[in-house]
Every structure is written in structure tokens, then in C-alpha cells.
Deep mutational scan, measured.
Amino acid sequence: MSGNGNAAATAEENSPKMRVIRVGTRKSQLARIQTDSVVATLKASYPGLQFEIIAMSTTGDKILDTALSKIGEKSLFTKELEHALEKNEVDLVVHSLKDLPTVLPPGFTIGAICKRENPHDAVVFHPKFVGKTLETLPEKSVVGTSSLRRAAQLQRKFPHLEFRSIRGNLNTRLRKLDEQQEFSAIILATAGLQRMGWHNRVGQILHPEECMYAVGQGALGVEVRAKDQDILDLVGVLHDPETLLRCIAERAFLRHLEGGCSVPVAVHTAMKDGQLYLTGGVWSLDGSDSIQETMQATIHVPAQHEDGPEDDPQLVGITARNIPRGPQLAAQNLGISLANLLLSKGAKNILDVARQLNDAH
């Protein structure tokens, strides 16, 4: 009898209710805020589980004197976190989706994509230029951005401005803007500013005609071990179906173009009346040469937790077992079709030249 009692006690200790789920994140304040929001949602869904947040620095956090596009290494903000995932030191990792490459290392998958916040870019102005827009900034004003995508589009749109690289986390960039006289304004992701509670610093939100956004911008991705079915089931509740389908289309477009950090590629997606609209573009580094096109596809946005595919093969690095396969494939095909259209119009040449120029500098 006593033996059975011990077995029952052991089973209770090993039951999922007692389990601590370890969540990996970057150390920056924004990353911690984003991770806290994901953990809060998981806690609400699984009140019996405990969650421990483990923060670590990544290569991208450490190399702050070089433009991201020049470092010449993929997975700048993800490699150390993936290493911890691989060694079973954490069970899942919360990322900004735009930091996750469209091809993940073997053994990993994006197990959830959370509801997207505003994906557009924002302009934050130096205190002396508050009330201005990019259009009304004085001639030769210097605007800071760490992104080739932003610089290429904005140089084309605002030729009277000069664009220079600015690195560091959000706090560091804002301090550089406010305390030094080098920059009249800087460009940042609206979602990051909003998550930090800095709505009052948003001086201008850039519309798609001015600057399309990065693939996955404004959404959070939760990376897990691809074979860890328990954790895949656990994080599945975080999937937002519309965000998922938009981001599958965007990531398929980028992957098929073979774009990345070192080339200016941008997108804009919208879901309306059962249609998914995808606009994508590529630019030369100075913005003088560009190709942009829009395509659409009829896609039914499923309700969360309709029964999805059981075999769960990944699409552009994403596993969404609780979302039907048909809409996911339709979104992926839309991204591939748009990429093929741009490639047929000469996108590869623009991107190759951009890559060579970026590598040469």
C-alpha cells in the first residue's frame, strides 16, 4: 500500500501541473516587456503551470559599433537563445518575429505568432524639431536608422535628408537623439515604442507609400524545439490566425527572394473581405531603383483552434497545428507568387547589386 502511495506522490510531482516552463529572452527592456506579455497570456491559459524567465545577451546586443547589415552573420539576435533551447536550458524563446530568419536551424520551429501590433515605422524627432515631419525637416538634416530597408525607401522619398546608421537598443538610440546634436530624427518601429509606453515620442507614423515595413514587423514569434510536442501544444494558444497568415505570406515572399538583413526588402499586408493583399518591394541601397507589386488571394481566416493538420510540417519556419492547413498554404503560395513576379521584373539584379555594395563598404 505504502509503495503505491509513493508512486502516486511521484506521479503528482512529475505531472504537468508541477512543471516549471523556462522562457528565454534577450536582456533589453523591450525584450523583457514583450516576454512578460507572452508569459502573462500563458499564465492565464495555464494557471497550474509556473513560468521562469531567463534573460541573456546576444551577438546583436554586444556589437554596437557596426551596422547590422555589415556584421555579416545571420541570427544576430537569436543564436545564443537557440543555443540555450538546444541544450534544454529553456523550453521556449520569445523573439520579435522580424529577427527570426525565414529558414531556422534544424530542430527549431516557430510554435506561435502572437497578435500583431502596429507594424509601421515611426519617426521620433529631436526636441528642437518636435512638430515637424520628415518632409518639413531642414535641408541636409541627419536621420538615424539601423535599417537598409528604411534608408533606401526614405532616401527616395525625401532626397533633402541624409540617413546615417544608429545602433543600440531603444533606450540607447533615444538617448543619442536627445543628448547629442548629430541626429534631427530617428526611425523606429511603432510597436516597440508603444510597448515601452513611449507613445508621446511618436512624431509621425510612416504610411506604406512612404515606407513599407519589415517582414514580420510588429509581431512576436515564440520559438521552440520542433519535436517538443508538449510545448508546441502549450504555445499553440498564442497563435493569432490573421497575423499568422499575413506573416506566412510575408516570410514566403522574403524567403523566395532570398532577402535578408543586408538587402532592402519591404512588405505591406492587409486582410479585407476574405482577401489577403500582399505588397512587396525591393530597392537599391540608395533607393534610386525599385520594383513594387501587389497581389491578392482569397483566404478564409479560420477561428482559433479549428482542428489543424496533425502532421505539422513547417511552413517558412512556422508550425501551427491548430490552424487549418489550406489557408496557410494559400498564404505561402501568395508570397511565392509575388516573389516570382518581382524576380521576373529584375528584382534579383537589384538585390545582387545591393548585396555587393553593402559587402564592399
Rank of each mutant, 00 (worst) to 15 (best):
L206R: 03
F158G: 08
A112L: 07
V20D: 05
R167N: 08
R26K: 01
L81P: 07
L188Y: 01
L161N: 04
A44E: 12
R156E: 11
I53P: 15
E89Y: 13
L154N: 04
P309A: 14
Q328L: 08
K115W: 05
L351D: 14
P138A: 13
R156I: 14
R255P: 03
K62E: 08
L97V: 12
M295Q: 05
E258R: 01
A40Y: 14
D61C: 01
I231N: 07
K272N: 14
I248S: 08
E242R: 09
M56W: 08
P47W: 05
L188F: 08
N349S: 07
I350S: 04
Q328S: 15
G259S: 11
R325L: 15
A347C: 04
G197E: 05
P313H: 06
E52T: 11
I33G: 07
F253D: 01
V202D: 09
R325W: 13
E179T: 11
I231C: 03
L97W: 01
T279Q: 08
K87D: 13
V265S: 01
A219V: 13
R22K: 13
G221E: 01
T78M: 04
G326R: 08
L343Y: 01
S96H: 04
L244T: 14
Y46V: 14
K345D: 05
A189W: 01
T172G: 09
D359C: 14
T58R: 01
V123Y: 01
V237P: 14
K115F: 11
Q155S: 13
N200H: 14
T109V: 15
S57T: 07
Q304A: 15
R22A: 10
I53V: 11
D359S: 03
E250P: 01
P101H: 12
Q356P: 15
I54A: 07
A189R: 01
N118D: 15
A347R: 15
I318W: 01
Q275T: 01
G192N: 01
V130C: 14
D65W: 08
D61F: 01
V222M: 08
N340C: 01
I71D: 07
K227R: 08
G144S: 06
L104M: 13
R175V: 13
Q229R: 12
D233S: 11
L97M: 08
K157I: 10
A303M: 04
G221R: 01
V142M: 10
V235G: 04
Y213F: 04
L342V: 15
L232T: 12
G197Y: 07
I299R: 08
K345Y: 14
H199D: 15
Q204R: 09
S147F: 01
T109Y: 04
Q50L: 13
S141F: 08
I166L: 11
V142Q: 06
L329E: 01
G192F: 01
L329S: 13
A219Y: 04
Y46R: 08
V94E: 03
R175C: 11
Q292H: 14
Q29L: 11
L104A: 08
